[in-house]
Design a protein around this nucleic acid. Structure first.
Length: 712
DNA sequence: GACCTGCTGCGGACTG
């Protein structure tokens, strides 16, 4: 394959002393150089995907064409900064300039690029949006003859609002591009290949190159039952022994828990005179502090460290030296688990190492289910929204500003060719425009649509470029240094103690006007409470949990500690008294005293929808997403009747949704731009993004409730 | 009991 590459690139490979190319690199070289198709590259973490894309692209580039040659799009600034060094080193062999273009990049570098547009540009979706809105002439100048567009960590966009926005931006770039560009997507964890292909705009003209080899992994499962809200001391002591001499990332699933783990490990370490390199890293920790921690972990080769973090360290920056990954309770998705495990053992010949702690039997089962499914090559297939009305609304405002006004027909044409909105009809586009006119987001002058009075306020703010919402929060400050940010919560009061950035603080003063909280170090404190919703669990994970609990072949796990084996055995004992035959439709119904517990073993959206239908029918029930259970205060036979007859007409559902929208407007907060949509479109979004009524009704119709035959 | 992501343009003060 190497002979297909240009001379400077071959020199780069020689200087790097690579003995051979990785499989994904050989394949990518052949396909990128010898075909004209769009390409999705999928192979395990740390397998050299960036080089797999850049070596052949740089070899094949037409250097006589004007402007930027390659646009690399990343979901994270941190990832751009990390990749910049690697890509620049490579590009030096060809004297191709590389420019970072994101909100924290130097303005001088951007100005230099505008003066002589060339080479590779590393950018975020939001910065593309901003450029199209504010300086469309720059976009045309820079990207008018673009040859390649690379999407890194493409899975993080699939099935999300940000993915729809990116699809629209790619489409809009295509419209100002005169020569046509190829799209190359990179990822280690793609569940739905068809959806990844859609992001190129031409799924039928897109090739998937997949290296199925998996990173070798050492796993151990441990079990410490939680009592109350704080982590068991025994768990922390065991965790301390696991991490004290290693370089470790710990994923405890929430920001509050991440703080608890960091502070308590540090305390234990202090008591036994261990090292002090315990950190917490999540979105509420100040950015500078986070960057310091990242830098420390990246450059430090000698000392052990432990970073207790959320998904902030799940993708992107390469901390090459991480030896172990600790997961506390189940990750909400397989994709997420795989990315996390892939943070360790990234060097040649190393294995990944995962220690999975569970604090109850359900989390243990869910963690096992994720690992089993990964071994079976299953990753959640994410699906893009059929009709993303809210994203279209945002893009309409963006396009009107980009073109400085358009007629309705011109605007409709521009949207009609945008592949991100291929399923939305001209009538629907018209309806959304009408709504925007009513809200004065748009204004019509003659035939021309321009940004309206209210729209000016929407469009001329920096918050316009992103499609996700962020809550207001208070800056936490100690001696002029910002430690991080916390939302306004009950414990944010003078003299209360809080945990943040792996330290304990006492609140001294609160400035409500400036949203600032002044703190001093303290000895003991509560973990902060954050708002927010975790990820949604896919139905397949719950189905696999049922299988683990009910099917005999899942009773021998050498990776489980004795305590974990015992916890699993007890839960299995309880569930094996049901005679579950068909994992897809049989569901346990447990009679307990005066209660009947229906275990749906369903995904979050379907559970939520069942709960919605039950409340629509005024049936008293207690719903727990944690174990996917519904507790009724009636007899099992009555529950069977309830479940088997539970259904609602579309009209009933709509009516209930409308009541919900009226009584509790915060239910629309999942959509940043939904509030300007007509009410029936808001209802549609709520039904399709938060619930899955079709899935729920299909499940309820087909499921068969199994009552325990006899208590063992 | 529950994650994450990003951000323009301009005016004015300050530094070397």
């Amino acid at each position: 394959m190497i002979e297909l590459l240009s001379a400077p690139i071959r020199r780069y490979i020689r200087d790097k002393r690579w003995e051979s190319l990785r499989p994904i690199q050989s394949h990518a070289i052949a396909h990128i150089i010898q075909s004209d198709k769009h390409i999705i590259l999928s192979s395990k973490t740390a397998s050299g995907k960036t080089e797999a894309a850049f070596l052949p692209m740089l070899s094949k580039l037409d250097y006589t064409r004007r402007g930027v040659k390659i646009l690399y799009v990343s979901p994270l600034i941190a990832l751009i900064n990390d990749q910049f060094n690697r890509i620049e080193e490579l590009c030096e062999y060809l004297e191709v300039p590389v420019t970072k273009w994101h909100g924290e990049a130097k303005r001088s570098a951007k100005e230099a690029l505008l003066k002589s547009p060339d080479g590779v540009v590393l950018i975020t979706p939001e910065s593309i949006e901003a450029m199209l809105v504010n300086a469309p002439q720059n976009a045309a100048e820079l990207f008018g003859e673009l040859q390649y567009l690379v999407i890194d960590e493409i899975h993080s966009f699939i099935g999300t609002d940000r993915g729809t926005q990116l699809a629209s931006l790619i489409s809009r770039l295509g419209q100002i591009n005169k020569t046509g560009f190829r799209v190359i997507g990179l990822s280690a964890t793609i569940g739905a290949v068809a959806e990844a292909k859609k992001l190129t705009g031409h799924p039928e003209h897109t090739t998937l190159l997949k290296d199925k080899a998996k990173r070798e992994m050492d796993i151990s499962f441990k079990y410490y039952k939680i009592e109350g809200v704080e982590l068991p001391l025994d768990l922390l002591k065991d965790l301390y022994l696991e991490v004290k001499d290693s370089k470790v990332l710990i994923f405890p699933n929430s920001r509050g828990r991440a703080e608890e783990v960091a502070v308590k490990l540090k305390k234990i370490s202090g008591r036994v005179k261990g090292h002090t390199n315990y950190f917490s890293h999540h979105s509420s920790v100040d950015r500078e502090l986070r960057e310091y921690i990242e830098q420390f972990a990246k450059t430090n080769t000698r000392y052990p460290f432990a970073i207790s973090c959320t998904s902030t360290l799940e993708l992107g920056i390469d901390i090459g030296s991480v030896e172990k990954v600790v997961q506390i309770d189940a990750a909400h998705s397989i994709a997420s688990l795989i990315q996390r495990v892939g943070r360790s053992g990234r060097r040649d010949g190393e294995k990944s190492s995962l220690i999975s702690y569970a604090t109850d039997e359900w989390n243990l089962t869910q963690s096992l289910a994720c690992i089993e499914l990964f071994r079976e090559d299953f990753i959640e297939p994410m699906h893009a929204a059929e009709k993303p009305y809210d994203l279209l609304l945002h893009q309409i405002l963006s396009i009107v500003k980009q073109y400085n006004g358009r007629t309705i027909d011109q605007l409709k044409d521009l949207v009609a060719v945008n592949f991100a909105f291929a399923n939305i009809s001209p009538e629907e586009i018209h309806y959304i425009i009408k709504g925007l006119l009513e809200h004065e987001q748009l204004e019509q002058i003659g035939l021309e649509l321009i940004i309206g009075v209210e729209g000016e306020r929407t469009v001329n703010t920096k918050d316009f470029y992103s499609v996700f919402r962020t809550d207001p929060s208070f800056k936490i400050i100690h001696q002029d240094k910002t430690i991080g940010e916390l939302p306004l919560m009950s414990s944010l009061q003078i003299d209360e103690n809080i945990l943040l950035a792996a330290k304990i603080w006492k609140i001294q003063e609160i400035d409500y006007r400036a949203s600032k909280v002044f703190v001093i170090p303290a000895k003991d404190g509560k973990k902060p409470i954050f708002f927010g919703t975790g990820g949604e669990v896919h139905p397949k994970i719950r189905e696999k949990m049922l299988e683990i609990l009910c099917v005999g072949r899942y009773n021998n796990y050498p990776e489980l500690s004795e305590e974990a084996q015992e916890a699993l055995r007890l839960l299995q004992l309880e569930f094996r008294s049901f005679s579950i035959q068909d994992i897809r439709i049989d569901r346990p119904l447990m009679a307990k005293h005066l209660e009947s517990i229906f275990y749906a073993f369903q995904g979050t959206k379907i559970n939520r929808s069942i709960n919605f239908l039950l409340s629509l029918k005024n049936i008293e029930v207690e719903y727990h997403e944690h174990d996917s259970s519904f507790i009724f205060k009636t007899s099992p036979s009555q529950v069977i009747t309830i479940i088997k007859t539970l259904s609602a007409t579309p009209e009933e559902i709509d009516c209930q949704i409308d009541r919900l929208l009226q009584n509790n407007p915060t239910v629309m907060e999942f959509s940043k731009w939904g509030k300007y949509l007509p009410l029936d479109y808001q209802r549609f979004l709520l039904k399709s993004k938060v619930y899955d009524f079709e899935g729920a009704q299909n499940f309820l119709q087909s499921c068969s409730l199994i009552i325990a035959t006899e208590k063992q």
